[in-house]
Design a protein around this nucleic acid. Structure first.
Length: 843
RNA sequence: GCCGAAGUGGCGGAAUAGGCAGACGCGCACGACUCAAAAUCGUGUUCCCUCCGGGAAUGAGGGUUCGAUUCCCUCCUUCGGCACCA
């Protein structure tokens, strides 16, 4: 019977695995020692690792851990690689839930928010992350929103913030306006609460984001996920085409935008949006009543939701006519709600032969259809069936040869968009020559509406005077503070600040007379558009951030967070940086070089976790049961990080087992056999150690966290075998132990420190050690097993030296008895030797 | 409808550069230890067959190749985004 030789542990060391004891101990020591304090150090390369800051909703949930702890592990890895790493954290602390709580519990939003922050700070500390808490920024602190307001004023002064009345999206539940980005999906619901939004005609503050529409489409030099780039590209929705001036019969110009100027000769009528300013002027007396009714209907419809899908086209004839500028045709002008005032000019030329919507409209109202593109065969001709406006059953929005179009007949129209299409190019040149149109580009992207009729946000720092209109609050009077003495937050559709007895009273900065403050607050996405800059110098009272800090740390090297922000935060803060650059506040137009999105942790039944469904996994409970290291490691292991997966509460046991096995091996290095390790055992151990190191290093770089853990598990299994073979105490063993602990240090920082400093007595701290170097020679295999295929099927395996020549491998493969059997005495037709991989014999 | 991502055992997933499919872990089964359980350790675990041995298999079908989870084409499914955008 095998008996384990006990090696007595030194008295001071606790041999039982008790992470609940040593984790808080190390957390406290690291913080006391300012181990993770990030200060400018020109002698080292910097690495700004950023992960999205949370909203202080009450408790940290598993999703926060999933986002933050692997990001922390990677930041730690970078730090061990020699980078000067900054990994800050803060709170996106303004927002609606605080007001909800205020109403429900009759507590000031500030009180609720800061109590939550307290709680979440403690929960975050239990992660053992390398957050530099001295850089913490809280967006609802006056010292923070002073600068949010200052930025607003800068944007205003540079013409990038303006006030405008228009139909805007309004959430009737949250009682506030929303930015276009915050309205989601086919049903046009509020991103926050899921209520269908309505339209309201209101005067609001906007940021001129569209000024950067084109620049925002450029991602050169950025290492961002393709999915985010395409999502933003789609959102911005760039269309290349032409603007063309039509005229009414009396000569009023009507500007339209089209992506298909090559079909101009096929424009047989025009359609105006019901809100188009020219509608009343062109409407004839006998059509006036019908138009009035239709406009009223349309207005009501925008209020109750335009259900665009499957809706049959409606419209009314105005009685007015326009002149097609290219062929002087007199064409009727209709009004229909399928033309939107918010895109292009609110008027279109209708080409029913080649546009599905116009076709449907023309058929319904019996309007003329003239084909101007003739379909052709694959080789350019002969023409396919002759098209006929009378009989065609659907629009033909494809390529072909131009017909019925005067000078352009016979021109080839391809399926290319914009100037790449020879037909479009030719027509645009013609239009420009004649002075009736020009090349033009339109965007789907809208300016950012930032006014919110809510209390818990940064007040918009503007005052209104009857004589001098809107003026910014002087910088010396910033911040415009939120009042503490407010008791009513009920959303009424107007800001609660409006109902405060004195808050809105101000002095006009121009004349000194009485003025009224803007009572709306800013969209909280404004706060998060620059938080990465506030981390640079969170307590600077003279500037939003310190230039020296900016110059050293920016841009952010790695940003991690959820992809749900693709068209919101991730677009807003890119816009913000470009605006800052143009205002001369910063250099560089992009905030973040590398972006990675983690997936989502779903509930065990594959549904989304939510408080209402009571399926939320609480990290606190897991930390109590397993320790933070196990939770961290499991979150890195249980799924592809960038993809996410349903939670598996059994699965964590495997990671917990690994942690215990790590503990056991390193605290009880007893060698069960007396036989010393052979040279082979030691060599093999070193090989595995350095192979693992190579892999782990690669996987950290590439955010492949799950395979980091599995490689470490495999190596641990190897080390147990090496221990059995008597490797303990050898140089190879000692090296393995050291490298192993360094490799787990970023993943499981507490156990690594406890074993390193306490049990092995190595110099504190393991988190100040250098990442080990791969010994390529040690990692190399001496001999390799190569499969031999006959006609694509593996029939035998041969073992050859790693540096065997192709000829040697071929000879060895053909020498195999099994292979010979399959050859049945015949000469192989072909033998392919894939070097170091495989031999393929073809008979 | 358009754009994007993804489909591999019961489950999460692995597979440097086109070269042994299923690493690692969960779960399950059996065994050791135990009065017993937990913990721990060991063995097995893609499917099918006539189980010595062989065959099939990475959403489906086709192609390129000596060789395809990997590259190309067509299709299906799931998820995400956009959607009367002229």
């Amino acid at each position: 019977m095998k008996r384990r030789t006990e090696v007595r542990a030194p008295e001071s060391k606790d041999r039982s695995f008790n992470p609940q004891a040593f984790e808080p101990k190390w957390q406290a020591k690291w913080e006391a020692d300012k181990l993770y304090r990030a200060v400018i150090d020109e002698s080292r390369p910097k690495h700004y690792a950023l992960t999205m800051l949370p909203y202080p909703s009450g408790d940290l949930h598993i999703g926060h851990w999933y986002a933050m702890t692997p990001s922390d592990a990677r930041a730690r890895f970078k730090r061990m690689q020699g980078y000067n790493v900054m990994f800050p954290m803060g709170f996106d602390a303004f927002g609606l839930p605080a007001e909800g709580a205020a109403i429900k519990h009759n507590i000031h939003p500030k009180k609720w928010t800061y109590a939550n922050i307290e709680r979440m700070r403690a929960q975050m500390r239990s992660m053992g992350a390398m957050f530099d808490w001295e850089r913490e920024a809280v967006s609802s602190d006056p010292e923070y929103y002073k600068w949010t307001q200052w930025f607003f004023i800068q944007l205003y002064k540079h013409g990038l913030a303006y006030r405008k009345k228009q139909a805007v999206d309004w959430c009737p539940k949250d009682n506030t306006t929303l930015a276009r980005e915050q309205v989601k999906g086919e049903d046009r619901v509020c991103d926050r609460c899921g209520t269908p939004v309505i339209k309201k005609e209101l005067e609001q503050w906007f940021f001129k984001a569209t000024k950067y529409a084109d620049e925002l489409l450029h991602f050169e030099g950025l290492d961002w996920p393709d999915s985010i780039e395409t999502s933003q590209t789609n959102w911005i929705g760039r269309s290349e085409g032409a603007s063309v001036i039509f005229k009414t019969e009396v000569g009023d110009p009507i500007e339209i935008f089209t992506t298909r100027p090559d079909t101009l000769w096929g424009a047989t009528f025009m359609v105006f949006s019901p809100e188009h300013p020219l509608v009343d002027k062109i409407t004839t007396a006998e059509n006036a009543e019908a138009i009035r009714v239709y406009k009223a209907e349309a207005e009501k419809q925008t209020d109750i939701q335009r259900e665009a899908k499957d809706k049959e086209k409606t419209g009314v004839f105005t009685g007015g006519y326009a002149v097609n500028p290219v062929n002087e045709e007199r064409i009727p002008i209709w009004v229909a709600d399928y033309v939107l005032m918010s895109y292009g000019t609110g008027a279109i030329m209708a080409v029913p032969a080649h546009d599905e919507r116009d076709f449907e409209f023309a058929r319904k109202f019996g309007l003329k259809i003239v084909p101007v593109i003739q379909p052709v065969g694959a080789d350019g001709h002969p023409p396919l069936q002759e098209q006929n406006g009378e009989t065609m059953t659907e629009a033909y929005p494809h390529d072909g040869v131009i017909i019925n179009s005067g000078p352009f007949n016979g021109t080839r129209a391809t399926n290319d968009k914009g100037m790449k299409n020879p037909a479009i190019k030719a027509v645009i040149e013609y239009l420009e020559q004649k002075g009736i149109g020009k090349r033009d580009v339109n965007y789907r992207y809208r300016d950012w509406l930032i006014s919110r009729q809510r209390f818990w946000g940064a007040p918009i720092p503007m005052v209104h005077c009857d004589t001098h209109g809107w003026n910014p609050v002087p910088d010396t009077q910033l911040p415009v503070l939120l009042p503490d003495d407010i008791t009513e937050w009920k959303p009424t559709g107007e800001s609660p600040l409006k109902f405060h007895p004195t808050w809105k009273d101000a002095v006009c900065p121009v004349c000194g007379e009485h003025a009224t403050r803007e009572t709306d607050t800013m969209d909280t996405f404004m706060c998060s558009s620059w938080y990465h800059l506030r981390y640079l110098s969170p307590h600077n009272d003279n500037a939003p951030f310190d230039d020296a800090e900016y110059n050293y740390w920016m841009p952010v090297d790695t940003y991690t967070g959820g992809s749900e922000h693709a068209n919101m935060h991730l677009l807003y803060f890119r816009f913000f940086h470009k605006a800052l650059r143009d205002m001369g506040i910063t250099e560089g137009g992009e905030p973040v070089m590398q972006l990675r999105n983690q997936g989502m942790v779903l509930a065990e039944d594959n549904s989304k976790m939510s408080k209402s469904k009571d399926n939320v996994v609480a990290p606190d409970v897991l930390v109590k049961k397993y320790g933070a290291d196990t939770v961290r490691a499991y979150l890195m292991f249980f799924a592809r990080w960038q993809q996410g997966a349903p939670w598996d509460s059994h699965g964590i046991e495997g990671t917990a087992r690994w942690m215990r096995r790590v503990w056991t091996l390193f605290t009880d290095p007893a060698s069960p056999s007396g036989t010393p390790a052979s040279a082979d055992v030691k060599k093999n151990l070193r090989r595995r150690v350095h192979q693992t190191l190579k892999r782990v290093t690669h996987d950290f770089e590439n955010f492949e966290f799950n395979t980091i853990i599995s490689s470490l598990m495999e190596l641990l299994n190897e080390m147990y075998k090496a221990r059995e073979a008597g490797a303990v105490g050898t140089d190879a063993w000692n090296e393995a132990v050291e490298i192993y602990l360094k490799m787990i240090a970023p993943v499981t920082p507490h156990i690594a420190e406890e074993l390193w400093t306490n049990h092995l007595g190595k110099p504190y701290s393991i988190h100040q050690q250098k990442w080990p170097h791969v010994d390529e020679a040690a990692a190399r295999e001496d001999s390799i097993e190569i499969p031999v295929q006959v006609n694509g099927k593996v029939r035998d395996r041969i073992v050859v030296a790693v540096d065997a020549s192709e000829e040697e491998i071929r000879t060895a493969a053909l020498a195999s008895e099994i292979i010979q059997k399959y050859l049945e005495g015949k000469e192989p037709r072909k033998v392919i030797v894939a070097h170091g991989k495989l031999v393929s014999v073809v008979v």
